[in-house]
Simulated assay, not measured.
Amino acid sequence: MKKSLIALAVLGFAGGAMAQSSVTLYGVADAGFGKINSPALGAAADPKIEMLGSSAMNNGTSRLGVRGVEDLGGGLQAGFNFEHGLNLENGAGNLSGGQMWSRAANLWIGGNWGTFKMGRTLNPSFYGLATWELTGAANYSVVGNTYGYTGEGPRTSNQFSYKTPNLGGFTAELGYVFKADNSDLAKWDLNAIYANGPIAAGLSVNKTKSQKTNYALGGKYNFGSFAVAASYNNANDAADLRRRGFSIGGTANLGAFALTLDLTRDTKNEWTGKKYTNGVLEGKYALSKRTFVYAAYLRFDGDNNYGIGLRHNF
């Protein structure tokens, strides 16, 4: 009898502990076919129509992730996120800057005062851009590809960051990388975001020591069945060569179907020595809340690229 009571007490305690924490397995499966002609987007020496399982013309990169969160009490939580990219052409890993879990490997703690995070993660500049970008920051985003996701790509390693709580739709995040973790060059990265009702706007700024400052400012207004967006971008490469310009575009939502046209125009381009007008035309049809088919055409620095595929989120 005593053993039964003890067992019930242990199970009750374990159940209470489990109720305060959770671990979630999630991911994306994305594959299709198309043709990539732009060398900067990974074109082959002799481009042909091929299967696309991890490319610039997929809507997103297939991935498998795990995230967890624990309620520490008093409004305090701790959590983690690990994420690994996959190539559905052959099952190989898609190493977004490193080894396994290179898409995300971080630990955080947060409460009503905000969130403090440590590790490899999407950087604040990326979140600022994703606030207003019309394709949902797809792999074929014309803004992201033309201006290098605010000049530094979407992810940062060895980053410490603080994000404010949501204050009436306004949030801000500041990230920092010590020079010992970045080839003796300290780096900071920040965003300021307002997203409330039909209005979404984001400012992204980042700077690496001894290099010029990168920034992007954009906004989007959602009318319901139609949304418009515009931005101004200034990006610098490691040699401090500059590319800057603006974007303008719109999305029409027609039930399960959505059509997006987004254009960029260079006002200065030291990367290639020539100013370009780039653009993406994207069509998506939702088969369910988690699955959609898509077709995209990307005109990038004088080359034509296209992809047709299927994406499933789980």
Rank of each mutant, 00 (worst) to 15 (best):
G74C: 05
L41S: 11
S22C: 00
N191P: 02
A258N: 15
G93D: 10
M100E: 10
G202C: 05
A92L: 07
T121L: 09
K2N: 09
L174A: 09
E133Q: 14
A19C: 10
N206T: 05
V177W: 00
N166K: 11
V66L: 14
S102N: 04
V10M: 09
Y232T: 12
A17F: 11
T264K: 06
A180N: 15
S38D: 08
G75M: 11
L95S: 12
E173N: 11
A17G: 01
A227Y: 02
P154L: 15
G218A: 12
K2Q: 13
G250N: 03
I109C: 05
M118F: 15
K284F: 01
N94K: 13
A137R: 06
Y176D: 07
G75N: 11
W113A: 15
F160H: 04
T150P: 02
K220G: 03
R67S: 07
E173L: 04
G60S: 13
K35F: 02
Q159D: 06
S204Q: 10
S96M: 08
Y215G: 03
G98D: 10
N123D: 10
D189K: 05
G245T: 04
L88G: 01
R265D: 14
N59F: 08
G75A: 10
N123R: 12
N206M: 08
A44R: 13
G53Q: 05
G279R: 11
G202R: 04
D240T: 08
S125I: 02
L281S: 07
F223E: 02
G151E: 03
F33E: 05
N158K: 06
V28D: 08
A31T: 12
T171H: 05
R63G: 03
S183K: 06
F292C: 01
M57G: 01
D303A: 11
P154R: 15
S102C: 08
N37D: 11
K163H: 03
S204W: 07
R299C: 01
L190H: 02
E152P: 00
K220I: 06
S141I: 02
K3V: 06
D237M: 12
E152S: 07
G273L: 06
T164F: 15
A200Q: 11
K117E: 14
A40F: 05
Y26Q: 12
G283W: 04
I6G: 08
T131A: 14
M118Y: 15
N166F: 10
V177K: 00
G197W: 10
L174E: 01
N278V: 06
V66Y: 05
Y140E: 04
D30I: 07
F82C: 00
A92C: 01
G111V: 03
A295I: 08
P165G: 07
V280F: 02
